[in-house]
């Protein structure tokens, strides 16, 4: 069991962080959630807004992401994310405000409003709030 671990590397435009000895990494692919374990086949996927979960002997971590890419190769998972916040680092008040703003915008029947953008913003904010519960 000890040797059946993978390395996970999270890279965003702001920072880079590496997690060793990870047993399982699950991420929100555009075609559904998936899990990467030891000796996964080479894999590249596009990720959508959602939650990333890392499990290791030391504990379990949750991250909120607004999408990106994942590459799994030789027991190394590289996550290329637009944003990534650990569950306990999420600014709940800000996420709530963002969700409120997005809802407000969706309610208005104004033609000038970019519905898709507002929906995405709402999805991101709700995702943050959901993940924040899991610390």
């Amino acid at each position: 069991m000890e040797s059946h671990v993978i390395t996970v590397e999270i890279t965003t435009p702001q920072f880079k962080k590496t997690f060793e000895n990870v047993i399982s990494c699950s991420a929100p692919g555009v075609k559904g959630r998936f899990q990467i374990l030891y000796q996964h086949a080479p894999f590249i996927s596009h990720l959508e807004v959602g939650e990333i979960k890392l499990e290791s002997a030391e504990g379990t971590w949750f991250f909120a992401t607004s999408g990106g890419f994942l590459e799994a190769l030789n027991n190394k998972v590289s996550l290329l994310l637009d944003t990534c916040e650990r569950a306990d680092e999420i600014d709940v008040a800000r996420a709530q405000a963002a969700a409120e703003r997005a809802r407000e915008r969706l309610k208005q029947k104004d033609k000038n409003i970019d519905v898709q953008r507002a929906q995405l913003a709402l999805a991101r904010a709700l995702n943050r709030l959901r993940v924040a519960q899991r610390k």
Binding site: V30, A41, P42, F43, I44, S45, E71, L73
Partner: peptide
């Protein structure tokens, strides 16, 4: 050359 599994397909990615 590594034979990756792509999700979704390569062009979309």
């Amino acid at each position: 050359r590594i034979d990756y599994i792509y999700e979704p397909d390569r062009e979309t990615l």
